[in-house]
């Protein structure tokens, strides 16, 4: 498709187990492997369109952060390729572009404690010739100002900032590289709730003003609903549903998305909690079920679901679901999902 700006093609990420010397000798002698490789992301294909914000949601351990890290050029895919405007994001195990930048989850870990924040922001742009060294101070001051910080704070150390301020510094550092795509990996998850909204609004304002394309990774559906144009829902290393945020979150076409929506705690005016957890547990990614990974927890599952993983297919215009029984779900508003209980 021509509108793809960032494209992810059949990307997988496998983490090989670390074997001790004894285990390696045993394996060489033909013993059955004691540890299996962990497949965190399985053949995911995805595209992000120019100017849009794609939300990536899923439970912890579903592979959303790993996928985000591959798109950001931090982790090299085991198979498949990520490209931006046709150019690969990574080449030979190293990041090959400055056009993708990342805002990390924990601003207390993502800033070097022994570097003044102004130097941290200027470092990348100076190294890549985006700004000459004599102009770096003014350049940094400009980005601090845009991110809602006093430009005089450039001479301070990270420990002198609060969590919210640090995340603003981290955003300024990412944006000072003048990226086209900003990967936000749970950018507000480690912040106080009172600060979250400020940072989200800052990100949304900057995205609009700078014409950024965004990948927004989060486990929090209400945040993703707030910021995303489209959402992708991940479960056990695969994307199970993809589509415009408003319609996916109003009428999910995959039982897992529906379960995720209903298990999110909400307050309603009549004081009743609508919290309804998904029965069962996420299967181990070391030993995934042969068919649809959600089948063991799904009340709609049939024999066909357990045979082979269902492909992500278009169930309605712009709407993709990896569920063989998506037709049962589409057209049915959430909240009447009596089929989810039990299992």
């Amino acid at each position: 498709m021509s509108e793809a700006f960032l494209s992810v093609e059949a990307v997988s990420k496998t983490f090989a187990p670390r074997l001790s010397l004894g285990e390696r000798i045993a394996a060489a002698l033909g013993a059955p492997p004691a540890k299996r490789p962990l497949q965190a992301v399985r053949e995911v294909s995805l595209e992000i369109r120019r100017g849009e914000t794609l939300g990536l949601v899923g439970e912890s351990g579903c592979g959303k952060s790993t996928l985000g890290r591959m798109i950001a050029g931090i982790a090299a895919p085991s198979a498949g390729a990520v490209s931006l405007d046709g150019d690969p994001v990574m080449r030979g195990g190293r990041k090959a572009t400055t056009r993708v930048q990342t805002v990390f989850q924990d601003p207390f870990a993502s800033l070097d404690p022994r570097m003044k924040v102004g130097d941290a922001i200027a470092e990348g742009p100076v190294a890549h010739g985006l700004v000459a060294k004599p102009q770096a101070r003014a350049y940094v001051a400009g980005w601090l100002d845009r991110c809602g910080l006093d430009p005089a704070m450039a001479d301070r150390w990270p420990h002198q900032f609060s969590g919210g301020q640090r995340q603003r510094v981290a955003i300024a550092r990412a944006l000072a590289m003048q990226p086209d795509l900003l990967v936000c990996d749970e950018p507000v998850a480690s912040l106080d709730v009172s600060i979250q909204a400020q940072i989200l609004n800052l990100l949304m304002d900057l995205r609009r003003d700078l014409g950024l394309t965004c990948l927004f990774v989060s486990h929090d559906i209400s945040i993703v609903r707030h910021v995303s144009d489209r959402v992708a829902v991940m479960y056990l290393g695969r994307i199970v549903e993809l589509g415009p945020a408003a319609s996916v979150l109003a009428r999910p076409a995959h039982p897992y998305s529906l379960g995720l929506l209903e298990s999110a705690p909400r307050l309603s005016l009549d004081g009743r909690s609508t919290f309804r957890p998904i029965p069962g547990d996420v299967p181990s990614p070391l030993a995934p079920p042969p068919g649809c990974a959600f089948a063991p927890r799904c009340s709609l599952a049939q024999d066909a679901c357990r045979a082979a993983p269902p492909p992500l297919s278009e169930v309605a215009p712009e709407r993709f679901s990896a569920c063989l029984r998506a037709d049962v779900l589409t057209g049915r508003p959430p909240g009447q999902a009596s089929h989810m209980s039990g299992a």
Binding site: K95, T102, F104, D112, E123, G124
Partner: peptide, 21 residues
């Protein structure tokens, strides 16, 4: 730690990451 990852993801050269961070 994330700050090393952030430096590598900028990307900055390996030498710079080692000596400056």
């Amino acid at each position: 730690k994330d700050y090393v990852e952030a430096a590598l993801a900028t990307p900055l050269s390996g030498r710079r990451v080692v000596f400056r961070h």
